[in-house]
Every structure is written in C-alpha cells, then in structure tokens.
Simulated scan of single mutants.
Amino acid sequence: MIRRIHPGYWLSLGLALLMAVVLLTWGREAICACGYVALWHGETMSAENSQHVSDWYTPSHIIHGLIFYALLWLVARRLPLGWRLAIATAVEAAWELLENTDAVIEHYRSVTISLDYYGDSVLNSVSDLIAMWIGFALARWLPVWASVLLAVAFEVFTTWMIRDGLALNVLMLLWPLEAVKAWQGGA
C-alpha cells in the first residue's frame, strides 16, 4: 500500500527550492567562492564561514526547528504535522532571505566581529533549512525535557567554542552591545 505524502511536506520542499532560486537571483554564490564544498567548516573568522554544508552556526538552526515545533504545537497543534512543518519552513526560509539582504549583512559586519561575513552561500542556506527540519523532527520524537536539554547544550557548547550562538546572534542583531562584541573578539 502506498501512503499519500501530506501536501505540507511538498510545500516545504517547494519553499526550500523557491528560497534557493531567490538567493541565486540575488547573486548569492551557489557554493563557496573557494571552489569546493566541505561538509564542515570550523573557522568562524574566515571568508568561508557560512559557505559550506555545516559550520558552527548549524546547531542554531537545529534549535530553530526545536523552537518552531514547540511554538506550533502550542498555538496550532490541531493542524496536521505537514502544515506545521510548512509554516516552520516558511519562517526559516524568510529568515534565510532576510539574513542575506545587503542591509542585514552590513549590520552584522558593523556590530559584530564577523568582518569577513558577506552572506551565506545558497548551499549553506539550504543546509541551514535542512538543519531546522532536523530540529523539528527531533522535537517531534524527543521528550520535551530532552529537546530543552539539547537546545541548551548546543547554546552552551557553541558559546564556549566560538563565543557565539543563537542567543548572542539575536542579541547582537537586535541590540548590539560593545561589551559583547569585545568579549567575542577575545578581549
């Protein structure tokens, strides 16, 4: 017996494809301008950051999925899972597009230590969206305490390793603090 795939899943795939096409039409690099694709790039202070499949910011996108699942469970749990995933995908894709506008890129460069940041490659943006899907799926199957523990662990680990993470990223985007910028720079 063949199971019918919920339209929300197809919509999620379509939104991911649309996001990639928009980014390409905006002139974003499909892959790293360095000319190769790496599964992991661990150097945050480089022009290759946010250009490959995964990096230190991938856990933040998994956390997005955990948060989106929780919020949509709270406010729209009567919607089928496929539609909730489509909503989460639309929000994540909108964020990836916003994050790759010239205004946001310049804002990041001016208020954070990300001086070599020139936007994400399309590959990285699609990978970030897939990381969100992974977080969404994990939240679906994990107990709430495990989802919270995973999010906190990712935040603590990335903050310890690179002096950045989802919370600091949002803080510096919305309310930049010189003390945080100095700390992130190693001062």
Rank of each mutant, 00 (worst) to 15 (best):
M1V: 13
M1K: 06
M1F: 10
R3W: 13
R4C: 01
I5W: 09
Y9H: 11
Y9W: 15
W10G: 09
L11Q: 04
G14F: 06
L15A: 04
A16Q: 11
A16E: 06
L18C: 03
M19W: 01
M19D: 02
M19G: 01
V21Y: 04
L24A: 15
T25D: 08
W26D: 08
G27F: 11
R28H: 14
E29T: 02
E29I: 00
A30R: 12
A30D: 05
I31K: 01
I31E: 03
C32A: 15
A33N: 03
C34S: 13
G35S: 10
G35W: 10
G35D: 13
H41L: 08
G42C: 11
G42P: 11
E43S: 13
E43A: 14
E43N: 14
E48G: 09
S50D: 14
Q51N: 06
V53A: 07
V53W: 05
T58P: 00
S60E: 07
S60D: 10
H61E: 12
I62F: 13
I63L: 10
I63H: 00
L66I: 15
L66E: 08
I67Q: 08
Y69V: 06
Y69C: 01
A70L: 13
W73N: 11
W73F: 11
L74Q: 08
L74Y: 05
V75Q: 01
V75Y: 10
V75W: 13
A76S: 05
L79W: 15
P80G: 08
L81Q: 04
L81R: 11
R84W: 12
R84A: 01
I87D: 01
A93E: 01
A93H: 01
W95M: 08
L97E: 02
L98Y: 14
T101L: 03
T101P: 02
V104M: 15
H107G: 00
Y108T: 07
S110K: 09
S110D: 12
V111F: 11
S114D: 06
L115S: 08
L115W: 02
L115V: 08
D116P: 00
Y117M: 07
Y117K: 04
N124C: 03
N124R: 06
I130M: 09
I130T: 12
W133Y: 13
W133V: 09
W133S: 05
I134K: 00
A139P: 02
W141A: 09
L142A: 14
W145V: 09
S147Q: 03
S147L: 05
L149R: 05
L150H: 00
A153E: 01
A153G: 07
F154C: 12
F157H: 10
F157S: 12
F157R: 08
T158R: 07
T159M: 11
T159F: 10
I162R: 05
G165P: 00
L166D: 09
L168Y: 14
L168M: 07
V170D: 03
V170I: 15
V170K: 02
L174D: 04
L174W: 15
W175E: 13
A179D: 13
A179W: 13
V180D: 04
K181Y: 10
K181T: 15
A182D: 10
W183M: 05
A187D: 02
A187F: 03
